[in-house]
Simulated scan of single mutants.
Amino acid sequence: MGIQGLTSFIDHSGTFLKDDHFRHSRLIIDGSNIFHFLYFNSSVDLKHGGDYDDFEDQVCEFFKALRDCGIEPYVVIDGGSDHTDKKFETLRQRAQSKINNLSMGLQGDRIIPVLVKQVFKQVLSSLNVPFAQCIFEVDQEIASLAKRWNCPVLSKDSDFYIFDIQAGYLPFFHFQWQNVSVQGGSSQNYIPCKRYTTTSFCRHFNINRQLLPVFAAIAGNDYVNLTNMGFSIRWKGYPQMESNQKPSKF
């Protein structure tokens, strides 16, 4: 779904993401996010049919890094579109943006080859990585599973800044899986990353944890666009609070 501007705000705030040495844990992975990210960051040839063998190598390296650190991955993948079509306008705008950029020769919105998702699932099967595919959108299912197993979520979807996941959310942009390190004084491998919890966010802004979904709607997401209604939150203009400043109650 995505909360407009929230990822950039949290990245730039320097307040909510805490350094973490991640190892020896279960990990719920947002599969659709990850295969997009791995594909577009694997130096594959985007112009000649997919270059699926190089993509396979990238996926294998990723899951090897996890297992070298004792991390047990479980991948959950998006299914079809919501039958209510609540997200239709957002999907239409994204598709139009890609068409416009490609027609002008821009590379900002790259088109993923049609078989990448199928290749990703085949590689997961060959590596014996457990995975499931949802009927519709995956976010709520991932959050529920993470709560049940008390383990973090790996994704790059800003929705997970809102879900109250006790074990936290690991943004993929900060998940340094290609930089596996060794814990000082031991032989244990870990992946340097940053971990987010709603506790720090709610404490900072004095927000009732149960009202986070309302906050997400106010901020604007793929289903609710308050800008079109004459209201919006501009994260760039939000002042950073000083340590001695008391936040207002939400």
Rank of each mutant, 00 (worst) to 15 (best):
K117C: 12
Q118V: 13
V119T: 15
K121G: 09
V123S: 08
S125A: 15
S125I: 13
S125D: 15
S125W: 13
L127I: 04
L127R: 11
L127C: 09
L127P: 05
P130C: 12
P130W: 10
A132H: 14
Q133L: 05
Q133W: 05
C134W: 07
C134E: 13
I135M: 14
I135P: 04
F136K: 11
E137D: 06
V138L: 08
Q140E: 14
Q140N: 12
Q140M: 10
E141P: 01
A143V: 10
S144K: 13
L145A: 13
A146C: 14
R148P: 06
R148V: 15
R148Y: 15
N150E: 15
C151L: 08
P152R: 03
V153Y: 05
L154H: 02
K156T: 14
K156G: 11
D157A: 06
D157G: 10
D157H: 07
D157K: 09
S158R: 07
S158V: 06
F160S: 12
I162T: 07
I162F: 02
F163W: 12
D164A: 07
D164V: 01
A167T: 03
Y169I: 04
F172M: 08
F175T: 01
F175W: 00
F175V: 04
Q176T: 01
Q176I: 05
W177P: 00
W177G: 01
V180T: 04
S181V: 01
Q183N: 13
G184C: 12
S187A: 14
Y190V: 00
I191F: 03
I191E: 02
P192Q: 01
K194L: 01
K194N: 01
Y196C: 07
Y196I: 08
Y196S: 03
T197Y: 01
T197A: 04
T197F: 03
S200H: 10
F201Q: 08
C202Q: 01
C202H: 03
C202P: 03
H204G: 09
F205R: 09
N206P: 00
I207P: 02
N208F: 04
Q210H: 05
L211P: 02
L211Q: 07
L211S: 08
L212I: 04
F215E: 03
A217D: 14
A219C: 15
G220V: 11
G220A: 09
G220T: 10
N221M: 11
D222S: 15
Y223I: 15
Y223P: 02
V224Q: 13
V224E: 12
L226I: 08
L226E: 06
